[in-house]
Simulated assay, not measured.
Amino acid sequence: MDLVSEVVRTVRVGKPGSRVIRQSDSQGVRFPPFDGIGFHVVLRGTCWLISEDEEPAPLKPGDVVLITSGAAHGLSHVPCMLKDLSPVVTSPVPRKPGPFGFEFLCGVYHLERGRTPQYLRALPDLITVSPDYDRLPQMRALIDLLSTDASEAYMGTAATLPALLDLILVHTLRQWHEQYGSAEWSRTDDPAIAAVLREIHKNPQQQWTVDRLSEVAGLPRTVFARRFTAGVGQPPMSYLISWRLSLGARLLRETDATLATIAREVGYSTEFAFSGAFTREYGVSPGRFRRTPTTTYISSTTNRPNPQAPSEELPQSS
């Protein structure tokens, strides 16, 4: 099962955003908890990743911090306590030119009502990856493109932003998974459970029951339910409902299909049944969810090289 693809497909229904932040005060910034997934890329200077439970971790230019499920965290000039950092200010007003301690690129998908995928909630809250830019020049190019779009109000940014976020998330998760993921996600790679997940994802409209899913797994019903819950983090039917509604949310955002058509595609007999389940899960009706714009926040802060900036910069590909 391609877990990375499943993660990106699921978070794509969220509201994308990106900005470049230059940190110029004497300490750093704190990011509050949020529903969703995000990342920071250190562009220039050095800093420390600050969390509530772990020791401060040093970051250098090019390092990527993945916030898998919206945990509170901070970036600081020096090691410190998270509570000692000032909350980040997301004002669109550009900062005045001048010296800064470090500069970083932010990307995020804000999700409604805590719909962070179970796969992400099973990972560490904060993941640090140091990409090999010589081996992965495409990662360098993606970061350049996103930082440019996040720095200027270019035409078409609303279209390019989700694509760039998706690609950076894919490359970051892929590299982390290559290094550590086999241990962290080993339970989800259970062949029997992976076969069930493939069927649920491929055919959500089927009238699945625990008995039918256990037949797909080739396991007794009780054994299947226990292994599925242990590997995925949810009972089979809870996961099925969550996946159907997540797919429904994607179709609402990405297509003009009628509510009745979407309901049938995701396994509900009527649009009223789908609407009721969707409203319970997302807190808004499908119609209102579709009408709500996926607004993006693009910072007007520039990331053009500053003659007074630190010499440490994101490594350039050869």
Rank of each mutant, 00 (worst) to 15 (best):
H201D: 15
P235L: 00
L247I: 11
T255K: 01
F228R: 00
L245C: 08
L251Y: 09
Q234W: 03
P236Q: 01
F224I: 10
S214M: 07
Q207C: 05
T258S: 15
R198T: 13
R187L: 15
L240K: 01
I200W: 08
E215C: 07
D190W: 00
R212H: 11
S242R: 11
T222D: 14
W243M: 10
D256N: 09
R244K: 12
A195S: 15
A260T: 12
T255I: 06
V210R: 03
R226D: 14
L197Q: 09
T188N: 02
A257P: 01
P235D: 11
P204L: 04
T258R: 09
M237D: 05
H201N: 13
P204Y: 03
G218E: 13
E199H: 11
A249W: 07
T229Y: 01
L219Q: 13
S214A: 15
L213A: 04
T209D: 04
R227Q: 13
S186D: 09
D190F: 01
T229W: 00
T229Q: 11
H201S: 13
Q234V: 02
M237Y: 02
W185P: 02
V232K: 00
V210K: 01
Q234E: 15
A183I: 13
I241L: 15
A194H: 01
L213P: 09
V196H: 07
L240S: 02
R212L: 15
S242P: 00
I193Q: 02
A225V: 06
V210W: 00
E215W: 07
A194I: 03
Q206H: 12
R227L: 10
I241A: 11
A257K: 10
L252K: 01
T229K: 05
G218C: 12
I193P: 08
V210H: 01
S214R: 03
A257V: 02
R198H: 14
A183K: 14
P191G: 04
A230M: 06
T255P: 06
P204I: 05
